[in-house]
Amino acid sequence: MIEEIRAKAADLLRSGEVKCFIGYERASDGLTARPFFAYSADEADRLIFDGTCVHNLARYLPDMRGKRVGILAKPCDSRSINVLIREGQVEREEVYIVGVVCDGVYRTTWGKPSRELQPRCLYCSKRTPVVYDYLVGQPPPAPESQHPASISEVEALERKPAAERWEFWRSHFARCIRCNACRQICPACYCPQCFSDQLDPLWTGIRIGLPQNWVWNVGRALHLAGRCIDCEECQRACPMGIPLAILNRKLASRVKELFGFEAGMDPRAPFPFATFEKEEEIL
């Protein structure tokens, strides 16, 4: 698999089809992975792919606008690419997508890889990317979902009384240091000016405190409803261990219930929150 990815990336770079190929290389711990930008066929030899390749590389595509790039895409990453294309942030013809069949990725932090699947992989229904120009790996026979999740964290939390749920989020948001890692790593957070940086009106301002953190985290989750593809990168990046994916997953499930919509699956499907139908039902 790795050899095929390296060879394909090297071909794309050698032929000039792409200026840069975004994939993964081994991280400085020698154990986990990190994003890697290869600019020559020689550099393509540094590419790797395994269960530590957790990063959603689609996040880098808006940075590369105007340049033709190649990108390695897991199924989740491919859904993000679809969202970015649909939202006009990425031109389909500027990106050469090398899709990779994925068996799930592991919970990793630097220096500490594990063999435990990330929670999102338990909920993921795709093993084959939804969009690609070239596919690495054999697509499995349908149905693709291989890890039937037991009770989800969302359901577990919902079973608790309101006061406990309130305390759960209060204690997590109180810790938030507003480092913006969740936002900066998110493929769907590409606004040139985020509401949290806006001064007029002042939504949160710079203050790091419970009310501002609450508005920030909930505000961000709402902006991601119908757009988040559950790559869980925000949660992984959070140095303070805030379980942001629970919020995103809850909103995604409501969007699915109400609109039958799943972000990034179909690049032509209308967006629930950017579509107005004259006869639509009032919720």
Binding site: C179, N180, A181, I185, L199, G205, A237
Partner: peptide
Amino acid sequence: ADRCLSCKVCAYVCPSCYCFDIRDY
């Protein structure tokens, strides 16, 4: 910088980073 996210994690976890902002509420 290609892979840098422009987040502030490195600075906020750093014992010696001290950049600050001042604003009014």
